[in-house]
Design a protein around this nucleic acid. Structure first.
Lengths: 165, 165
DNA sequence: TATTGTTATACTCTATAACTATA
DNA sequence: TATAGTTATAGAGTATAACAATA
């Protein structure tokens, strides 16, 4: 809870108090990530007519040469089935992915990159990586390792049974 | 505690086998933050009819008892002016904030919480904090500190002149 | 002229629920 | 009956650009 007595006490944050440490940490995580997202998303949009959600979907397919089922894609990009159908349909119209029925289970649909989609993704990945390397250039190796490790712990909280790399 | 809808696979690992450390770090940051966002946003929606962007805006006003100008709000919540106008108008209709012209500069508009808005925010903050404390419970004090510090460095990269909260 | 904010517009992303086809 | 995916619908949040009022 946010005590009104603390509201003026700390110029850094209204929530600045030991009891609110986790919430402060989360707000910093949220704001920082949002900053990076805005830059990345607008770059992908401006230079490639794409977006961060599209990049993520294509990245999943890029590492799955045999394609992925819609449901697998849904789990990996953290959105619902209906949303994946919409996103894949858009990318298919743009010529970057292709759907086909799964021979083994005809309820299922397998999505894969087209040759065009692969080239498109790879050029986006290159630009994306250069941008990110620049944005993260201010972090020391120690900071990078600690950030990576701490995020791994947080992530593992959501998916305790899985390997968090 | 963590809804099954959010127990997802791992977009980050799409590029994990490559030697692209900064990009891997960014994807981990993005995925982890997205996981937390989904839980927080759906909780705020379900329990309070609110959302993370609304919470973020109200949090800014909560720590600014004298109110903020639209432009200041825009900078702090990282969205454009037009978007802030839209968000503030919605929150004003809901009775949580109030706009008035700035006496000193009549081009400007100052926004502040209403009494209702303050109570509303504080009860959301309480629930939000409990949820976050739970989600972050797996992090050791050392991990929390290193995460906070590394995020601070990253954030400072964007807005070097500003206070990093 | 420059700045502050609003209006008008359009669009992406997202969720939910009902539905179809297959298992 | 259960599962995989699609369709239909709805809505939030966002950006951009033209505009008005004031500095």
């Amino acid at each position: 809870m946010i005590s009104s007595a603390l509201r003026h006490a700390d110029p850094e944050s209204a929530l600045a108090h030991d009891d609110h440490e986790a919430l402060r940490l989360w707000l910093r995580l949220f704001t920082t990530t949002t900053m990076v997202e805005r830059v990345v998303d607008s770059t992908l949009k401006r230079e490639f007519g794409s977006s961060l959600p599209r990049f993520d979907l294509l990245a999943q397919l890029h590492r799955a040469p045999d394609g992925l089922r819609m449901g697998e894609l849904s789990e990996r990009i953290l959105v619902t089935n209906g949303n994946v159908t919409w996103l894949v349909a858009a990318l298919e119209r743009e010529g970057f992915v292709k759907r086909r029925p799964d021979a083994a289970d005809r309820r299922a649909t397998v999505v894969r990159l087209t040759a065009t989609g692969r080239r498109h993704f790879e050029s986006m990945a290159q630009a994306h990586e250069a941008l990110i390397a620049d944005l993260f250039a201010g972090l020391s190796p120690v900071e990078r390792r600690s950030l990576h490790g701490a995020l791994g712990s947080l992530k593992a909280r959501f998916r305790p049974s899985e390997d968090v790399r």
